[in-house]
Nucleic acid binder design. Sequence first.
DNA 1: CTTTTACCTACTATGTCAATAGGTTTTTGC
DNA 2: GCAAAAACCTATTGACATAGTAGGTAAAAG
Lengths: 136, 136
Amino acid sequence: MISTKGRYALRVMLDLAENAKDAPVPLKDIAERQEISKKYLEILVRDLVKGKMIKGSSGKGGGYTLCRAPESYSVGEIIEQMEGPLKTVACLAEEAADCPRAGHCLTLPLWREYDQLVHDFFYQKKLTDLLAQTKK
Amino acid sequence: MISTKGRYALRVMLDLAENAKDAPVPLKDIAERQEISKKYLEILVRDLVKGKMIKGSSGKGGGYTLCRAPESYSVGEIIEQMEGPLKTVACLAEEAADCPRAGHCLTLPLWREYDQLVHDFFYQKKLTDLLAQTKK
DNA sequence: CTTTTACCTACTATGTCAATAGGTTTTTGC
DNA sequence: GCAAAAACCTATTGACATAGTAGGTAAAAG
């Protein structure tokens, strides 16, 4: 399950892409538009800043701006920034690399295939693909 | 993330498919082959029995047997039996059907598409598809 | 009537999620 | 230079799920 962290962060990114004219977008406005507690968004946004996906500027007239062009962000990288590696199954995480059953496990190929499917889906989807719907 | 419940249950089903000759397969044997605590497996197996996927018979010479032909079980139904509805995102669960943002949410179509992808993947995969690898 | 098996109830430690609360620093405009 | 507006920071909480463990009862066969 994709948690609110990832889902809200994606909405923040979309909101920034939509509402960035020239000035930074204050979190207060995003919170109101998205109907999400500003306090909670602060936490999420911090992770986005850490990941160099958005940039914050303090003070009056401040707010957040995207670091790159909207079409360059994949949904996958946003989700991974928020929730950690997009691993669908524990067997495929770093720590499980040494599973003694790996050689003959009947289910491992299935998880690999699934993991690949999910990864490809989210990394080929760009921020602008979601935005397109409104612009018509 | 798919939890151990779903993953272990799938392995139990595969073990049953592989080792069912004529007699029921005791859980003790499955636990040893799969290297999973028998005590924990008892809990998982209970859910499978409840879902009418396998049948248990008590007493000496007892054990578990599949209820249907192995090729008729999809991986999806096994996972859903163990972990509940295969919903990848809270927005798509029953309770969230009344989300006021649904009409103009930019992310909802993405989640729908993802959900469909996952659902199709797991429901088209049959138990026998995983088994095939050994039989060569 | 003993052994083997399934079946049942309860408990627990750990961790994550989804927030809330309250405060500090930075920047700009007046 | 000071007040307002914004980002930024630390800590805490309640609820829930996961991944088991423990100890027992019932049923069936030999």
